[in-house]
C-alpha cells in the first residue's frame, strides 16, 4: 500500500491521490489540471491502469506491483521555456536511474536517449511527458518494481525487466516512490539552475555511446554511431557527414 501521507510529508508533492484502478494516471492528472488544480505538484498513483499510455499509441504494461504514477507540475518547476522543456524527459530518466542504482547490487542502470532506463538492455521504466496548452507538465512514470516478467505478456518477455526480477526481492513501494520523488526534485532543480550539468549526468549513464543507433522521427530516420548526449540534451550521431545533433525522435539499436 502506498503511504500518501508520508509522500506529502517527505517530498515536494503538495497533494496526492491514490486509485486502485484508473484508465491512465496521465489522463487523470490532465483532468485535474483542467479542473484548476492549484496545489502542485499533484501526484496521482494507480495500482492498475486499464489504458496506460506509452508513446505513439502503445499501452504500458500494468501488473500488480508495478509503480505507476503521474505528476502535475507548474512550468517553473522545470524552468520550462520552450528551449528547456525537451530536457524534462531526460531529467526524469536521470532521476529514475539514480533511484534504482543503489537497489541493484550487481547491475547498473543505463540510459537510452532520451528517456529510456534499461538494465541488461531491458526496459525497466516508461516515461511519458505531456505539456498542456498552459505549459503545465504532466509527467507519467511507470517503473517495473514488484511485478514480474513471469506475469508479462509474451511480447515483453525479451524486452522488459523489473526490479524484483533483477534483485530477487520485493521492495517497499512507498520507499521507492519517496526516493524517486526526491531524485526528481533534485533533477528538476538541476534543470533550472544548470541544465548542462543534467545533460552531463545523462551522458555519463548513456549506454548507447559507441553503438550504432538509428534515430526515428515521424517518417524519417538517421543511422550513425552515438557519440553521447550533448550539453543541450541533444543526441550526437556520427555519420559520414560528421557529428550531427538531434533534438527529436526515438532511438533503436541498429
Amino acid at each position: 500500500m502506498i503511504d500518501l501521507a508520508r509522500i506529502v510529508q517527505e517530498t515536494f508533492v503538495a497533494q496526492a491521490e491514490h486509485h486502485p484502478t484508473l484508465s491512465s494516471t496521465n489522463d487523470r492528472a490532465t483532468w485535474c489540471a483542467s479542473r484548476g488544480a492549484k496545489q502542485l505538484p499533484l501526484l496521482v498513483v494507480a495500482d492498475q491502469q486499464t489504458a496506460g499510455r506509452g508513446r505513439g499509441g502503445k499501452r504500458w504494461w500494468s501488473a500488480p506491483g508495478a509503480l505507476m504514477f503521474s505528476l502535475l507540475i507548474e512550468p517553473d518547476t522545470v524552468a520550462a521555456d520552450r528551449d528547456r522543456s525537451p530536457l524534462v524527459a531526460l531529467a526524469v530518466a536521470v532521476a529514475v536511474a539514480e533511484t534504482v542504482a543503489p537497489l541493484l547490487a550487481a547491475q547498473s542502470p543505463g540510459i537510452h536517449w532520451p528517456n529510456d532506463v534499461l538494465v541488461n538492455g531491458r526496459k525497466l521504466t516508461g516515461i511519458l511527458v505531456e505539456v498542456l496548452a498552459d505549459r503545465r507538465h504532466v509527467i507519467g512514470i511507470g517503473l517495473n518494481t514488484n511485478n514480474t516478467l513471469a506475469d508479462a505478456p509474451a511480447e515483453l518477455q525479451a524486452t522488459a525487466t523489473t526490479l524484483r526480477d533483477l534483485a530477487g526481492q520485493r521492495f517497499d513501494q512507498t520507499d521507492v516512490l519517496v526516493d524517486l520523488l526526491r531524485h526528481l526534485a533534485d533533477a528538476f532543480s538541476m534543470l533550472r539552475d544548470d541544465p548542462s550539468a543534467l545533460s552531463a549526468r545523462a551522458n555519463a549513464r548513456c549506454t548507447q555511446r559507441g553503438q550504432t543507433v538509428t534515430l526515428h522521427w515521424g517518417n524519417q530516420h538517421k543511422t550513425g554511431v552515438c557519440r553521447g548526449i550533448g550539453a543541450d540534451g541533444a543526441i550526437l550521431l556520427e555519420t559520414a557527414a560528421g557529428v550531427e545533433r538531434f533534438h527529436s525522435g526515438t532511438t533503436s539499436p541498429q
Binding site: 501521507a5 497533494q15 491521490e17 484502478t21
Partner: peptide
Amino acid sequence: VAPVMVAAPPVAAM
C-alpha cells in the same frame, strides 16, 4: 476504452 470508475475516494485530494 471501457470507462473505469474511480473506486476509492482520493486521499488529500484537491
